[in-house]
Write a protein that binds this DNA or RNA. Structure first.
Length: 839
RNA sequence: GCGAGGGUGGCGGAAUUGGCAGACGCGCGGGAUUUAGGAUCCCGUGCCUUCGGGCGUAAGGGUUCGAGUCCCUUCCCUCGCACCA
């Protein structure tokens, strides 16, 4: 009889065997340990141990009114698992949590219900804190950060001022999404298929003066630092693409009347002699001056048309090219030929110079355009070695290019660029897809832009000592055609800091991405009210060792955060340029139907029901076990029952153990069963240690199950009096410590039940005994011509001759080897492959 | 269209300097225990098979003693960008 009671008597707690099976672990155990952890301040960050610090960060979230969803658990819960392993490995883990609390949803909710964003946001935060607490993560709430708190946004505004002083915040006209029906500006997210999400009216573009951050100044650095980051390649690629650096030449095409020039950026100056016309973007400032009076009406009409078609039009893929001739001409900088200037919307003002030289022979778009409007299509590149029929966009030798014929594309680019530079009609240049960061929002629920507009002094920054510029509470935030703050007189009216005269505050608020671009710098010093943070302290606490969050932030948030960090580095406040050393994106948990969870689809899985039924740890365990962390996948109920079963299986094992502990240990020579148990133990420790590091939680849980199975197997195989109880107990300890990061409450409970001292999280992560992984004999696959024909037992590291001996004795293999062996390949301790002659 | 990632049993998913495909679990089948149900425990479970074996990692081809893994071609899915000059 094994010493563990395998179920009998365990479930008949009160009312006999008719009682439904009682799980030994439940949410009551969660509550018990959460309380104990709080009381003992177990997870308080010990600042004295900063040298061993490990900054583990999950992307903070928006405090929505809905409850925590599965995604939160998946992100926070499993990141916490990793952090707990780090704690057990001796790190002083810093795992803060906070709220990205400004933003549109609260404001829209207010418009619908009349409940003030401040009220709803803080209520939601309160609810979320409680729920996050139930998750049982190691969050140290002493370091909480809430972006809508004036104590926080004061420093967001300070950051704005610093950027302004550094010349990196500037004002410029930019188009905004404008809904004429609602009479308001819309955020990009509020524009659905080119229409207003609220009323369905076509959104059009309106020019407004807005604030920008000059992130483009940092484009090269943002690009150049990427290779050294331990980030998913995919994410780095997306950032690279987003920045979109391309090298080329800016070419000046002089106006025929000599009054100026139009600049075009091109990556293919080698095709310059193939340029037959120029195209300006509809909103290019040169359109008006160059247009002749005969063409004026047509151009104005086309411009108007282009202005209207925004998002909507872009969705229609293969659009036919449209455009209008301006009537104006420029001179080709090298040939002196007159080239007509057109306007077409396939050229966008935001990229390059907003004007192109069209080379219909060697560019597909220009080719299509030329065909439609009957323009000439000359060839200037040829490559006889391939199909170079026009439009040919590859490289080759120049032709019809006086002075450059015969040159290859590469050298030709250099030569033509030099030729242009000599006559002052062009220069090598770099263009980026990245645009400056537009940070103004004509919205209420955000950090006010700390700027004052004075009729005498112009734009004047709010003095630092007057921060924060508080968001006024009484404001009509219903849409009224301008920023809600604009009509809050008490807020707007102020005195100019320079001249003291009457002035107005900037009515806009900052993009919430500004709030979240530096929050990780604030966590460790969140109470500081004399500075954004103490640089000396922050340089000890950062960079973040591991950042975990959704891949939807692969570009925007992560790029902005890097930019701000670089800027503060340049300001001398930080001694690192990159905030996130290592980054992981969790996958997405889909609904049971395999589609993204959403209320409208009715496929939302609520964690609450599962937490109530099974407890937090079973839920966490399932999230760890059921998915590849990076890929995510569809929710499946049966998986969670499997986790519950496993937890119960461990609990039953632990329950059986005290009885066994009372028996004295049976001293004896180590048996095969014990060797196997030790192997499983060492194997589990090794694999879990490795796999957790790469966020491969599913295999970690598999190893935990294997170790549990191994314990049961040992107890069953070895009669009770012969068991090595000390070994069993030590292995159980290891099992619980390995399990603890995945099921913290439960492991803590089991630890206590076995009479070990609080807390399991103050124990050390087990270290595998490497010798135990080396077995005396190994199973070797015997292949004949690459096919496995048998497996044999041989001593570890057996020589080829020894293996041969065993193989020769094997009746199964005799026939296969009969034709004669040509060649033998041995992979030590894995396989032996005999290549035999064909029969 | 361009770029990146992926496609493995009925299901979730394992397996990478090229070396026994399918760990672990779900589901399913059988057995034990139980008055019964539930729970628990044990055994089995890629497909086909004439029981010798044959086939098998989206499809086809190649390199190799040996390929899920490397190379080429094609198909499909996901994500990102999308007239970027």
């Amino acid at each position: 009889m094994p010493f563990v009671s395998m179920g009998e008597g365990l479930f008949c707690f009160q009312t006999g065997s008719k009682e439904l099976t009682r799980m030994r672990y439940s949410k009551q155990i969660d509550a018990k340990w959460q309380q104990r952890w709080d009381q003992s301040r177990l997870y308080s960050f010990n600042t004295d141990r900063v040298d061993d610090k490990l900054y583990c960060l999950s992307m903070f979230s928006y405090p929505s009114g809905a409850k925590l969803h599965v995604g939160h658990w998946y992100n926070f819960g499993l990141t916490d698992t990793w952090a707990r392993v780090k704690r057990l490995q001796g790190y002083e883990v810093f795992e803060p949590m906070g709220f990205d609390a400004f933003g549109l949803p609260a404001e829209n909710y207010a418009i619908q219900t009349g409940i003030h964003p401040k009220t709803s946001t803080w209520t939601n935060i309160e609810t979320m804190r409680t729920q996050l607490h139930e998750m049982g993560a190691m969050f140290d709430w002493d370091y909480e950060v809430v972006t809508c708190d004036p104590k926080y946004y004061r420093w967001t505004q300070w950051l704005f001022l610093k950027l302004y002083q550094a010349g990196l915040a500037y004002r410029a006209d930019a188009p905004v999404n404008w809904c004429s029906d609602c009479g308001t500006v819309l955020a990009n997210e509020q524009v659905l298929d080119g229409t207003c999400e609220r009323c369905g009216t076509m959104v059009d573009q309106k020019e407004m003066t807005q604030w920008f951050f000059r992130i483009t100044d940092y484009a090269d650095r943002l690009l150049d630092n990427l290779p050294d980051l331990d980030w998913p390649e995919r994410t780095k690629t997306m950032q690279r693409h987003w920045i979109g650096r391309s090298e080329g030449t800016t070419i000046h095409f002089p106006l025929v009347d000599g009054s100026g020039a139009i600049e075009c950026f091109t990556t293919r100056p080698d095709t310059l002699f193939g340029a037959t016309y120029l195209v300006l973007a509809p909103d290019h400032p040169m359109v008006e001056p160059i247009t002749t009076s005969e063409q004026k009406a047509a151009i104005l009409d086309y411009r108007e048309q282009a202005r209207r078609q925004t998002e909507m039009e872009r969705l229609s893929t293969e659009r036919e090219k449209t455009g209008v001739f301006t009537g104006g001409h420029v001179k080709h900088p090298l040939s002196g030929e007159n080239l007509p200037v057109w306007v077409a919307d396939y050229v966008i003002y935001g990229y390059g110079t907003g004007a192109i030289m069209a080379v219909p022979g060697h560019d597909e778009r220009d080719h299509e355009f030329s065909q439609k409007f009957g323009l000439p299509i000359p060839r200037v590149i040829e490559d006889p070695t391939t199909d170079d029929s026009l439009p040919y966009t590859g490289e080759g030798q120049l032709t019809n290019s006086p002075g450059f014929d015969g040159l290859d594309s590469g050298p030709a680019r250099t030569a033509i660029t030099s030729a242009l530079e000599e006559i002052g009609r062009g220069e090598a240049s770099v263009s980026y897809r990245l645009r400056d960061w537009l940070v103004s929002r004509q919205r209420y629920w955000g950090a006010p832009i700390p700027m004052i507009h004075c009729s005498c002094c112009g734009v004047v920054p709010v003095p630092e000592n007057e921060l924060p510029v508080r968001l006024p509470e009484v404001v009509d935030y219903t849409p009224a055609g301008k920023s809600p703050l604009a009509s809050a007189d008490a807020f707007i009216r102020t005195d100019c800091p320079d001249c003291g005269g009457p002035a107005e505050r900037d009515p806009d608020t900052l993009d919430t991405f500004v709030d979240s671009s530096w929050y990780f710098l604030r966590y460790p010093d969140n109470q500081n009210d004399s500075a954004i943070f103490d640089p000396q302290w922050i340089n000890q606490m950062l960079p973040v060792d591991r950042y975990v969050g959704g891949s939807e932030h692969a570009v925007m948030h992560l790029l902005y955060a890097r930019f701000i960090t670089m800027f503060l580095y340049d300001e001398g406040l930080l001694d690192f340029e990159e905030p996130f050393t290592s980054l992981t994106h969790q996958g997405v948990i889909l609904g049971p139907d395999g589609r993204r969870m959403s209320k409208s689809r009715g496929n939302v899985v609520s964690p609450d029901d599962y937490i109530n039924t099974y407890g937090s740890d079973v839920f966490r365990l399932y999230l760890a076990f059921g998915f590849n962390y990076v890929e995510g996948g569809a929710w499946d109920d049966s998986g969670i029952r499997a986790s519950a079963r496993f937890v119960d299986r461990v609990a039953r094992w632990v329950e059986g153990l005290p009885e066994a502990r009372n028996r004295s240990n049976h001293a004896h020579e180590e048996t095969e069963a014990e060797k196997e148990l030790e192997y499983e133990r060492a194997h589990a420790i090794t694999k879990i240690t490795d796999d957790v590091e790469v966020f491969q939680f599913n295999t970690c849980v598999a190893r935990l199950m294997e170790l549990t199975n191994a314990l049961y197997r040992y107890a069953q195989a070895v009669p009770a009096p012969d068991q090595d109880i000390d070994r069993v107990r030590a292995t159980t300890q290891d099992l619980l410590i390995l399990l603890a990061p995945f099921a913290p409450h439960f492991a803590e409970e089991m630890w206590e039940q076995l009479g070990y001292p609080y807390s399991i999280f103050d124990q050390s992560w087990p270290v595998a005994n490497a010798d135990r992984l080396q077995l005396d004999t190994v199973e070797l696959a015997v292949q004949i011509n690459g096919k496995v024909r048998a497996t044999i037992e041989v001593p570890k590291d057996a020589s080829e001759a020894d293996i041969e001996k065993t193989v020769r004795q094997d009746a199964r293999l005799r026939d296969y080897l009969a034709p004669g062996v040509k060649k033998t390949i041995v992979v030590p301790n894995k396989l032996i492959n005999y290549v035999v002659n064909a029969q």
